[in-house]
Design a protein around this nucleic acid. Structure first.
Lengths: 207, 207
DNA sequence: ATAAAAGTTGACCTCGTGGTAAGTTTATTT
DNA sequence: AAATAAACTTACCACGAGGTCAACTTTTAT
């Protein structure tokens, strides 16, 4: 109770709106999402939503920003000291955890990229580019030292991204095929084991 | 000239509309796509588009159906006779080829799944489920025979799907990071080699 | 206690878009 | 050549959704 009072009304409303907006944008797409529906899910009148965010685009931007921040925070870093095996294990685990913890964020991001990243700022793109080239260098170093198989580092990163995000983005398809309605803790552990195992072996770091 | 005259006017118009619609639905989403814009890109008046397809949803359904058919046709089959190595090679190659040949189709399908497969018929989902369990059995057979590493077949299929489709769905991101505006033949071959190599090694079928 | 700031809301306006109606032109059949 | 069907087109309508506004209430600072 006390804790909540510390939050300003603004912060609480904004939080509710963003949570509602995230779901709405995922299921309906940018244009398909309506401010009214976001308002309903947030249990606020439409005009109130528009009081906190001037317009629909601002809501979407806020959701995107939130998503990108989460991506940054949750991503386990790849550092030379860890060596290839530990680094890859950590990274894969971090990505999978994020995928299962907040699939919506992954979906928002995926849709944005698929549609051509129309709303994504330039800085977000160049930032990623730098991140990839930086980490690729570390992998290349390990390869040169003979610490891991000679696999293209950039494509390795893409492979890890795609395989880990897949379970969030395509959860619908996967759950249908697995015959479940949602992921159990079991599934998550099994998938994590499968992916780390497979990727390590692909990098020549196992058996 | 003669060839074109064989096609009825209807067939030609429908083709133009579907091609235009595919691009429009990818870049704008279902709700964001406008019949007017589809008509413009197809170089037809809006009313003419609605003459061939009763309404927008029908256009989308037609695009989806076309996409699913392509998915079916292009998919290299996995048969026991090939053995694990050849089968996986063939399958990966087939999927990559499709991804680079028609990325739009992959994107449409991806967005549909991400958004919850609201427009996808039940039969399409159960069909996939059957396909996966059937092919998983073949993999399991090879594993039991000691022809390949013990990796979970279903997740292996997911991994192949995700890695191959990734290059189509996220081409925007990937090209930005690679610093190109589009894929060259070189890139495609390099990616194909990387993926087949990595996946085969992951399955214990190399070195 | 009082003023200012922040929050809340129903009513309203405008514009874009899906879809229709009704008619004209072009192709096909007999 | 006439008649029938297919293809095409213009003008229009209805409606949903984004966004504004002004009145009102609550909260916060002095």
């Amino acid at each position: 109770m006390q804790k909540k009072q510390h939050k300003t009304i603004r912060a609480k409303s904004v939080e509710k709106i963003l949570a509602a907006a995230q779901g709405e944008f995922v299921s309906q797409g940018y244009k398909g999402a309506t401010v009214q529906s976001i308002a309903d899910q947030a249990q606020l009148p439409k005009a109130n939503v528009l009081y906190y965010f001037k317009n629909k685009e601002n809501i979407y931007h806020a959701v995107l920003e939130q998503t990108l921040n989460m991506w940054d925070d949750g991503i386990g870093d790849i550092v030379p000291e860890d060596g290839p095996k530990l680094a890859i294990e950590k990274f894969v685990r971090a990505k999978i955890t994020m995928s299962f913890k907040n699939p919506q964020a992954s979906k928002i991001y995926a849709m944005e990229i698929i549609q051509g990243a129309q709303h994504l700022q330039d800085f977000a793109r160049t930032y990623q580019r730098q991140w990839v080239t930086e980490k690729a260098k570390i992998f290349q170093h390990w390869i040169n030292n003979g610490e891991m198989q000679c696999v293209d580092p950039v494509n390795l990163i893409f492979l890890i991204w795609s395989t880990t995000q897949h379970y969030a983005d395509f959860d619908n398809q996967i759950l249908t095929i697995m015959g479940n309605s949602h992921y159990e803790q079991n599934d998550i552990e099994h998938i994590t084991a499968f992916l780390t195992d497979f990727i390590l072996r692909g990098c020549g770091l196992k058996q």
